[in-house]
Amino acid sequence: MLNVENLRAGYSGDDAVRGISLEVAEGSCVALVGANGAGKSTLAKALCGLLIPRGGRVFFDGKEITGLPASEVARRGLCLCPEGRRVFGPLTVEENLFLGAYPRLPSFGPFRRAASGDLKRIYRMFPRLGERRLQQAGSLSGGEQQMLAIGRVLMARPRFMVLDEPSMGLAPVVVKEVFEAIRSLHASGMTILLSEQFAKIALALSDRAYIIERGSVVLEGASKGLAKNPAVMAAYLG
């Protein structure tokens, strides 16, 4: 469903992503694993149009999407749940969720009905969001914000989800909860690309994984096999 060919990307300076190729089949969950600074987030941003790649190509559903603006990529069903959650702090939980469905809602007319079904589904999945639907998103706890960020992406009815560091800055108990949610999403058939620094938990969840070090793929394969590979540990602590 997603094909990445020899992608290169970076901000200023050297490429942070140095020629990464990867493939994600429909319905699978693939993990990108590596220490911070390895280039996972840069890769995620370059896939989703937040960063214009310096080289290489990205295909989604067989169509090239390299260099398209992020809003266009999102409208095609490839949605990024960004690193650091990035919820709209001053807006309410519900407004955040409606924004997820923005492309298919009327800009100036009544919009609530058009998305109420999706909204109910999200509240069923994350009941705590329903309890706080009129609260400002900035006042939520880190875990709740992460759930809101995931919920916002789901409102878009994505066909492909990229989750960037969903565990960042969360307490271990909350990380577990978030990953439980991701697991059930995957079980329901969602295609997921998960970029995650906590290797153990990411490898336990995913079908396949790529180990990234300094902007390149150093290992790839079935997650179960990689979980036992000592080279994974080496990618983190040398």
Binding site: V173, F198, I201
Partner: peptide, 19 residues
């Protein structure tokens, strides 16, 4: 590098392990 807390900080806790 051998410290379990550091390893956990980087790799995440084992699923079974408690906080």
């Amino acid at each position: 590098r051998r410290n379990p807390k550091v390893i956990e900080a980087y790799l995440g806790a084992d699923e079974e392990q408690t906080s």
